[in-house]
């Protein structure tokens, strides 16, 4: 395998299997993601999409296999990875302001004990402004709408200033304007030669949003440029014979890709 010259490759996963209580949820994942791509991870519920990105960061234990980030083990490369967890994964009634949440994006650089300083605050405010949330910095997070909470998470990832981003359903439960704002931001990140992996639900927008797609159903069904792998056949393999999903997929195929 290309372990030697992997320094240019943002993410390599080799022979990775994940099991919860001995029941495998992801089998033999073997894939590479090239740099500067906006990557969609799609698959049905329970296919292991979230599990895969969590496993990359060591948030769930691997039963076997390895993950390399720019050719090195993940543990050495934490600083280059940015993470947007699922919005539902945290308690939004927690007594914390939007700005403080964003500041967590600096924790990795600060290390133990050191507190965020003025410079960190400035960066956090900048990131909030970037996602259109400047005036909500001091707001307690439960007083934000779903879309705004998602923007806060995104701002936190932005100040991580990462080269590889892993995002778990950043579009779930957001309004159309937020979705557009997020996708514009992701495109901007890509233009800075960063790589973004996005767990995505909505098949209709896949061809529009992503230039690379990973299709999963407990194993990797397909991994490649959207134009090549996001095919009827692969969708059938990924989603099985479920009629509703197939028709959804068929619709998705009918949507012409946005010119880029």
């Amino acid at each position: 395998m290309p372990a030697e010259n992997g320094a240019q490759i943002p993410l390599q996963i080799h022979d990775m299997t994940i099991a919860y209580h001995k029941k495998p949820v992801l089998w033999d994942v073997d894939l590479e993601v090239p740099a500067g791509k906006l990557v969609g991870i799609v698959g049905p519920n329970g296919a292991g999409k979230s599990t895969m990105i969590k496993a990359v960061m060591g948030l769930v234990p691997k039963a076997s296999g390895w993950v390399k980030v720019y050719g090195r083990p993940y543990e050495e490369m934490r600083q280059v990875i940015g993470y947007v967890p699922q919005r539902e994964s945290v308690d939004w009634d927690f007594p914390i302001s939007a700005l403080e949440v964003v500041l967590m994006g600096r924790y990795g650089r600060l290390g133990w004990v050191r507190r965020p300083g003025e410079e960190d605050r400035r960066l956090a405010r900048e990131a909030l402004a970037k996602v259109g949330m400047a005036e909500y910095a001091e707001r307690q997070i439960s007083q934000l709408s779903g879309g705004q909470q998602q923007r806060v998470f995104l701002a936190r990832a932005l100040i991580q200033d990462a080269r590889l981003y892993l995002m778990d359903e950043p579009f779930s439960g957001v309004d159309a304007a937020t979705e557009r704002a997020i996708i514009d931001l992701l495109v901007e990140l890509r233009s800075q030669h960063r790589t973004i992996l996005v767990v995505h639900h909505d098949l209709q927008t896949v061809t529009n949003y992503f230039d690379w797609v990973i299709m999963i159903n407990m194993r990797v069904v397909a991994n490649g440029p959207t134009a090549e792998v996001f095919t009827d056949e692969n969708l059938q393999k990924t989603y099985g014979g479920r009629l509703t999903l197939l028709s959804e997929a068929a619709q998705a195929m009918a949507v012409p890709p946005r010119g880029r």
């Binding site: 945290v90 967590m104 924790y107 004990v113």
Partner: peptide, 21 residues
């Protein structure tokens, strides 16, 4: 000393872990 770490742990343990703690 560890106020920041505890805050991170309780609010979003996954993110704290991903940040290298």
């Amino acid at each position: 000393l560890f106020f920041k770490e505890f805050k991170g742990l309780i609010f979003d343990a996954g993110f704290l872990h991903a940040s290298g703690f």
